[in-house]
């Protein structure tokens, strides 16, 4: 049971890290960026290729993986969001354009085989691979019944540190105040001299970098990297997390992430492995029905 709780915290960390980026974009743009799970996957896949195919040390692979993810954030903004924002398209339009980009990214990795156009990006096609042992030092400790693998355990402080940093930036720095201003009232922000487009680009860069990093940590710790890890692990769970916490709330996403980790592990222990996903979505559904603003969100009202 202790091991399970540890697992809950560990998987919750990854959910939270992923969801923080997800919710950041929603909080500022009121848009669901459905390419976020593709960025998660891309971060992991690219890092893997850099390490295994191109023989780079892990830390270089990880840094480049995060940088590439951030770059995709800019692509999302400039290709999928800004043209639609310019003509004040309904939010469903951004939903579709980001789905389109996700499709492109997943398909590119999926077709990455030796000899294909994307062999530089990925060579294992639709297969699932893992970093070879020893990519990073991975000492393992046993304490009582607990097994502690460094690669998993370390994810917890790394995620928490990053989320604390993001929380600090959002809360106490001028840039954070600016981002919150854009989220709350873009008009007022512009009148105060903020370049709103640039702030939105920055939002997507931060969000996508975190998403990519979440993917890298996931791949490292779970030994499962494939074109589908985003879709299968975080696409919809990410939604559950940000709904539980309250759409747009960063602390909400963090708490939501750990809460979902816990709910899933409880479901696993109580109802067996298959129920895990179903229980999470039942929770999502109930939260929306009972308290659509989530744990930390605020209710909106339309003016007549």
């Amino acid at each position: 049971m202790d091991q399970q709780i540890l697992n809950a915290i560990f998987i919750g960390s990854i959910y939270a890290l992923f969801a923080v980026g997800y919710t950041l974009v929603f909080g500022i743009l009121d848009i669901l960026n459905l390419a976020h799970s593709a960025v998660f996957m891309l971060g992991a896949a690219l890092t893997y290729s850099l390490v295994v195919t191109h023989g780079q040390p892990f830390w270089i692979g990880a840094v480049l993986g995060v940088a590439a993810s951030a770059l995709i954030g800019l692509v999302i903004e400039h290709v999928c969001l800004r043209p639609l924002r310019r003509r004040q398209a309904p939010p469903i339009a951004a939903l579709i354009s980001t789905i389109g980009l996700a499709l492109v990214i997943v398909a590119a990795v999926e077709q990455g085989k030796s000899g294909s156009l994307f062999s530089w990006l990925w060579v294992d096609g639709a297969n699932s691979v893992a970093f070879p042992p020893g990519t990073v030092p991975n000492p393992t400790w046993h304490i009582g019944d607990l097994t502690l693998e460094a690669s998993k355990v370390l994810i917890i402080p790394i995620s928490i540190a990053l989320m604390l940093i993001l929380g600090y930036v959002m809360r106490f720095t001028q840039v954070g105040r600016g981002l919150r201003a854009v989220a709350e009232n873009p008009r007022a922000a512009r009148l105060m001299g903020l370049d709103v487009d640039r702030m939105i680009s920055l939002t997507l860069v931060i969000s996508s970098a975190l998403g990519g990093l979440a993917g890298i940590l996931f791949g490292l710790a779970l030994g499962d990297i494939s074109p589908y890890i985003g879709r299968d692990n975080v696409e919809v769970r990410g939604l559950a997390v940000i709904v539980l916490g309250g759409m747009g709330s960063i602390p909400g996403a963090v708490i939501g992430g750990y809460l979902l980790g816990l709910i899933e592990i409880l479901a696993l222990v109580t109802f067996g492995s298959n129920a895990r996903g179903g229980v999470a979505f039942a929770a999502l559904f109930l939260m929306l029905v009972l308290r659509p603003q989530g744990l930390f969100g605020t209710r909106l009202r339309e003016r007549i």
Partner: peptide, 24 residues
């Protein structure tokens, strides 16, 4: 602006600090 458009969710101090954005 009309209707003040202060940032209701931020503190008074945060509103003021952000106001120096353009000419720091």
């Amino acid at each position: 602006p009309e209707g003040r458009e202060i940032l209701a969710r931020q503190t008074v101090m945060e509103n003021l600090e952000l106001a120096t954005w353009a000419r720091r």
